[in-house]
């Protein structure tokens, strides 16, 4: 195999131009924490490595009239230290807290996490909770894609080889309870087996007034579970209610994936993790 050629366009326009002509032969590299594994093992069968890690167009976190915009090139460390995300997308910020080790967080980008289309991409549940859309561009057009549609199957991205994710546009939610939880082999480094994120708000009477919930990792693509929203909204969260909701969630997971050998472990684990995550809202 011929040696891989490294290219670093100076701006997004040049990068999109390059991909328009050579997309099929090109692998985009941002933080490299997924791509470098393949570069090192020789599994990468592309001619070009296109470095987008320094592109200003992909950086920055801001709240504007489009919504809460998070650049595809924003690193997990930047997410972790963002005050804007603390007050407008706490579940995403909490995701960064248990994402790999610090060295990885310093390089890994949110765009790379989503584009890699791993079912265990940790940023997906929180993005889904915030009804995030990815702004995706090629040389000739841009479009907004809901994050749940960024992967068609596990590890199969819906991006064309000519496209780059520019940013994610989230619906901001303030002043509520938010969390991200995952189960993996070891908290920091393992890939998640089960992951979930939530945002919830209670009214003055202590009932759940607003809830968004998403499940990741144990299904091939992330799911925003409107069923949980319907089941819990308007109710007073008690231990029993949350437990029941967790059971419902586990059933839904089985509906999506079918019964597998791992179901016997995942079914109670999902219910338990849901209970643990939502316990703080029990009055």
């Amino acid at each position: 195999m011929a040696e891989i050629e490294y290219v670093r366009p100076v701006n997004l326009k040049d990068a999109l131009n390059f991909l328009w002509n050579h997309g099929e032969d090109t692998k985009i590299i941002a933080g490299g924490t997924d791509v470098m594994i393949d570069v090192r093992s020789g599994a990468l069968d592309k001619k070009y490595l296109l470095d987008i890690s320094r592109m200003d167009e992909l950086k920055g976190i801001e709240l504007n009239d489009q919504g809460l915009c998070v650049g595809a090139g924003v690193t997990l460390s930047e997410i972790y230290s963002s005050d804007l995300l603390e007050s407008n997308a706490l579940a995403l910020k909490k995701t960064a807290y248990n994402f790999a080790g610090k060295q990885i967080r310093n390089m890994a980008t949110i765009g790379g996490n989503v584009a890699n289309s791993s079912p265990c991409g940790d940023t997906l549940p929180a993005l889904s909770v915030h009804r995030a859309k990815a702004l995706v561009a090629d040389k000739k057009s841009t479009r907004l894609v809901p994050v749940e549609e960024m992967a068609t199957h596990a590890y199969i991205s819906s991006l064309s080889p000519k496209q780059i994710i520019i940013k994610f546009i989230l619906t901001p939610y303030q002043d509520g309870f938010a969390d991200f939880q995952k189960i993996g082999r070891r908290r920091e480094l393992a890939v998640s087996r089960i992951s979930m994120a939530v945002f919830a708000k209670k009214d003055k009477e202590g009932r759940i007034a607003f809830l968004k919930f998403a499940l990741g990792a144990c299904t091939p693509v992330p799911h925003n579970m409107e069923l949980m929203e319907k089941f819990l909204t308007g109710k007073t969260p008690t231990r029993e209610l949350i437990w029941e909701a967790g059971g419902l969630l586990a059933q839904k997971m089985i509906e999506i994936t079918g019964r597998r050998s791992s179901t016997i472990y995942k079914e109670p684990a999902i219910q338990g993790l849901f209970m643990r995550m939502l316990y703080p809202v029990v009055k």
Partner: peptide
């Protein structure tokens, strides 16, 4: 990327040099 033995500081940040492209 798992053990951290290759950690260096790039522009003040700790990164795993085994996962960083030399370029």
């Amino acid at each position: 990327g798992e053990c951290g033995a290759c950690t260096i500081n790039v522009d003040g940040k700790a990164v795993n040099s085994c996962l960083m492209l030399g370029a």
